[in-house]
Design a protein around this nucleic acid. Sequence first.
DNA 1: TTCATTTTTAGACATTTGTCTAGTAGATTG
DNA 2: CAATCTACTAGACAAATGTCTAAAAATGAA
Lengths: 187, 187
Amino acid sequence: MLKVEKYFEAIGFAGDDLQKILNAFKLEKFKKNDFVVEEGKTSRYMGFVETGMFQYYVIQDGEERTYYVSIENTFFASVLSFISETPSLENVKALVDGSISMISKTNLKMLLNEIPAFKDFYISLLEVTLCGIDASRYDLIVLTAEQRYEKMLKNEPHLLQQIPLQHLASMLAVTPRHLSRIRSKIR
Amino acid sequence: MLKVEKYFEAIGFAGDDLQKILNAFKLEKFKKNDFVVEEGKTSRYMGFVETGMFQYYVIQDGEERTYYVSIENTFFASVLSFISETPSLENVKALVDGSISMISKTNLKMLLNEIPAFKDFYISLLEVTLCGIDASRYDLIVLTAEQRYEKMLKNEPHLLQQIPLQHLASMLAVTPRHLSRIRSKIR
DNA sequence: TTCATTTTTAGACATTTGTCTAGTAGATTG
DNA sequence: CAATCTACTAGACAAATGTCTAAAAATGAA
């Protein structure tokens, strides 16, 4: 059973509505380093991560600058591109083998029109996402790199176990060299 | 005529619906330095800025760290507090005399339930806000302070004319001292 | 206008963070 | 197993940014 199904069941969808929702999603598999979204191309899908981890990044001066990682049981989207239907500024690729239940913008709109409760779900998804990004932006302005690292250590320990430190470093807006310093200081 | 009325007219509301929407808002006036939201108190209102500018900030080590400024003709909200109904982490205060058309969360819910098109408006407000915050977060991670300043110079010149540099500095996540350096370098 | 207050700039120095480089340890592959 | 690759750490130095302070410039009030 797909995780996306469990998710929609858990928030109260059932019967025909649930079936219609699940039909709108299509499972897609990715090998490590496969691209989900490529810079410059408009991303017409969002999705629900079934397995694996997906790294959002841009290439700058030849280096990857990661600024987000999607993990299992969360929604995935290249927000700006998907919502505003403009070419993506970022790449998204699989950090390990994984799979995403993908839904096209067309299907999303269809569900929004046909299932009233789906609109409420979408509103709350947007609200939760908004809070998350807002909090993260707040941290970037208000906290030091060391405080951000400690917060990640406390709130998202799974990231530290699974994601290469070099990627976490750019999520914290520091270099790998500096993250190493922060870690040795805390130890 | 209030700007909030023009706004809702412009996006296609009219007649009874428009009237119901406008009745849900209540104009509130603020003197310079008045608080709209206080840290620690749950913010149960969002609003539409009619006049003035409103600064979002936290106090840290005795200093104000600004991370956003709302201006005329845009929506205002202490996002996290309003959406999740938790005590606000931030203060919002009037930078100059101004006014906001305020709507309570209760009234917002009422409009969402009673006017189908209002739900679509709210979805698109959330989407636009999400894109804005996402882009801003992207900039904080990917751009240097100097690049962020130049972008502000280009995209939001009104801020530079109206908002004290000390506040812009913290929005750019640098000290006033450093912003001064950036400015003198560009000159 | 004059005085007081706030805002902005900038010098001098300290601290933080980045760059470049190299080395080690662990994983992966043939 | 050896060979290679990748991730992580860290030294040495450079650049960016912060702290503290003072003075000039702009703003507001009497």
